[in-house]
């Protein structure tokens, strides 16, 4: 964005000024309304999830998933991310949700930390947005079950916010058979 050519310096200044104002406004609202987190919103089957950007390495279209025999059912397989092999997790299976109509996963969200890395299957990515942490509430009883412990909560609009740290540090995610 910053290196896009501008016709005149006047215009550049104007754009910068507008941006500065916008940024200032966000800063202001942060101060008044608690913290914001930046998340990616995506869909798995019929449900909408959000996950913080912090640990997302990249989002990659899914093709050619290789099945790994002997791995737990929530491991959908491995795929080639620019010469590197990444394992892919189906959260539906991991959360033990009732087998819904099979989705058509097209995207993989790759979560990465120092000791752990895997991709999450997603049917569709909606984009990046900011969520006010004040807006995240404890999850509804309807979302009870295994999944609950991997959620930071649910937003007012019903988006389940995943706990990325918990997912990355969970012992169950390490496959050592």
């Amino acid at each position: 964005m910053n290196d896009e050519p501008c016709a005149t310096t006047g215009l550049t200044e104007q754009i910068l000024k507008i941006r500065a104002e916008q940024l200032a406004r966000i800063r202001l609202s942060r101060e008044t309304r608690g913290d914001f987190i930046t998340v990616v919103e995506f869909r798995i089957a019929q449900e909408i999830y959000a996950i913080e950007l912090t640990h997302i390495r990249t989002i990659h279209p899914l093709k050619d998933l290789t099945y790994i025999p002997g791995a737990p059912s929530f491991i959908k397989g491995i795929f080639n991310l620019r010469g590197e092999i990444i394992s892919v997790v189906d959260l539906k299976h991991f959360f033990n949700l009732p087998d819904q109509k099979p989705g058509h996963a097209h995207q993989v969200i790759i979560l990465s930390s120092k000791d752990m890395e895997f991709g999450i299957l997603s049917d569709a990515i909606f984009g990046v947005r900011e969520i006010n942490t004040d807006d995240i509430r404890d999850s509804l009883p309807a979302l009870a079950g295994i999944r609950q412990e991997y959620l930071k909560g649910v937003t007012g609009s019903g988006i389940a916010v995943l706990d990325d740290e918990k997912l990355l540090n969970d012992q169950k995610m390490i496959i050592f058979l």
């Binding site: 025999p69 990444i86 997790v89 895997f118």
Partner: peptide, 10 residues
Amino acid sequence: LGKQLRRIPN
């Protein structure tokens, strides 16, 4: 096999 799949039989 990546950081997650530390050991898979066979």
